[in-house]
Write a protein that binds this DNA or RNA. Structure first.
Lengths: 302, 302
DNA sequence: ATGGACGATAGGAATAGCCGATCAAATCAT
DNA sequence: ATGATTTGATCGGCTATTCCTATCGTCCAT
């Protein structure tokens, strides 16, 4: 058995074809075929079902493939650890970030990181929490910035900042003139919400209640971005909860007013998370420092 | 990089010498030296410090070695998974068992397992919980039978049975004639205890109090085995808490009486634990069934 | 039926891994 | 101090593995 063979197996499992897998691995198709055949014989398990069209993973093969992924991830970690032991702050950091933080933090974070971590270029991936965490677990991301409790013990986290929510109301709205609004004053049916999967959607529903009403909110919005939501709010379609950094971008613009919220937990905790096995903890801590610096020094948020 | 190279690294780290490591790996010393040298160059990290006498792991090497162990364990798991996918119930099970369970359960468990799991011979390792758990984590054991909560999320467990404690008293003792004794009636200073590291010692102290007195119990015993303790008790040196299965062995013998205990938590929960990554869960569940069968069917315990 | 896509097979070339023999440095015993 | 011993590195040659190109068989779609 061999690390390379396992990479071949994973490639076939991912791409569904021997030929594609071979070119992805930069070897010829016969080479890959032969090695996999040999491995199957060595293990006594047929991993793939070849029916001429596609290569499917057999039921017994599934376990093998899963373990192969684990081995490869561990080997990658070893290489990363070796590189990190030269200089943990050197080498690219693949950073996931949720869609309701990315647009507002990135413009500050990226330049700050370029200064604070000059040898560690940041590659940003913006997506939903539910998509980022598997990528993280798979070793396809080095870290992620999210706003919910990370699941399980396999992840390590460090808090970046607390970000209060604001109620966003069109300027004509009765709330627009208020100093503050209590969460229980807000009619959840008037709330405009993001699409499923955005943690901000769940947090807004948690705060303003009635998640049991299902999707029966006023406009029944499933907006793909916070900006869409804010435009809709300005146009008078309803109200929105926005994190402070998003609200800040609209300060001074016409048509939309940010009103502080009163109540329990009217803030979200934004944190940096990474796999506990990831060998560049020093880089993670440095990145967290940079991010905290953005928030503290800049005009950004809380 | 290669799985074999990583095995070489781990062998050197474990044995402290290139030569020994080479023979442990069944290769010549020049081969092993060469491969490790090549790996060090490839990773850009000097893993070992050669000073002519011993090969020490460098500080930067420590991380590499730790990751290498992880890779190898994952690869071993893959092989195990392959074998298990043929028949999970085939192949030896290396089973750790704590010293206060082993002598009483093993005589029933081993024959029962030989019948219930005929193709999975049990290799029993008796030791303290604190020694078994690292062996388990290292993949040097497949499972362990312990009586405390397993730490962390990396282990999976299944309860086997609840085993009440009995107060063991010499036949002349006032408690010997009682139907039952409350734990708070027992003077902890009269308790004979096992050596440090036995969970039963801690459990006895938890029940009868005064762990803050340090070792100031009556006879200040640190017995290595429960049998020693029971003999001491029979000889009148004090009292002992014994799990039901151990007490049962003395039933009918002169000089020692087992008295049921009253109170909270006067039982221990014996369970089977294994690494979550271990691919033979089916064998674990079958083994647990066998063990439960011993306890239920036999005259053993509760 | 036929062309195209896919994987298996065969034979030869390149590479990597291995061994025995030997060398250099450090340690130990006299 | 000095020779013996131990330990790891180096060298030359051998072997096994891995890889490639070319080719074939099979299945599917046209």
């Amino acid at each position: 058995m061999n690390l390379r063979d396992l990479q071949y197996v994973v490639a076939v499992a991912d791409l569904g074809q021997f030929g594609r897998a071979a070119s992805a691995c930069n070897v010829s198709q016969p080479t890959l075929s032969g090695q996999i055949l040999k491995l199957e014989e060595e293990l006594g398990v047929q991993i793939f079902e070849r029916d001429g069209r596609v290569a499917r993973v057999t039921e017994r093969g599934e376990a093998i493939v899963a373990h192969a992924r684990r081995v490869i991830r561990a080997a990658d970690d070893l290489k990363t650890a070796a590189a990190a032991s030269r200089d943990p702050l050197e080498g690219p950091i693949r950073l996931g970030i949720i869609a309701t933080v990315g647009p507002y933090l990135a413009p500050y974070l990226l330049p700050a990181a370029a200064r604070g971590l000059p040898r560690a270029p940041i590659r940003l991936v913006e997506d939903l929490t539910g998509h980022l965490l598997p990528l993280l677990a798979d070793g396809k991301l080095d870290a992620a910035i999210i706003a919910t409790d990370p699941p399980g013990e396999r992840l390590e986290e460090i808090a970046l900042y607390e970000e209060p929510f604001c109620l966003m109301a069109p300027s004509g709205h009765p709330f627009a003139k208020r100093k503050s609004v209590r969460v229980d004053e807000i009619d959840p049916r008037s709330l405009l919400l993001l699409a499923d999967g955005h943690c901000l959607r769940d947090q807004a529903l948690d705060l303003c209640g009635h998640p049991d009403l299902g999707g029966a909110t006023g406009a029944d919005m499933r907006a793909a971005s916070l900006e869409t939501l804010l435009h809709m709010t300005a146009a008078g379609f309803g109200l929105t909860l926005a994190p402070h950094m998003a609200a800040d971008g609209w300060r001074g613009k016409d048509g939309l007013v940010a009103v502080p919220l009163k109540g329990e937990n009217v803030a979200r905790r934004v944190r940096l998370v990474w796999r506990r096995d990831m060998p560049r903890k020093a880089a993670m801590l440095a990145l967290a420092d940079v991010a905290r610096g953005c928030v503290a020094a800049g005009r950004v948020a809380v």
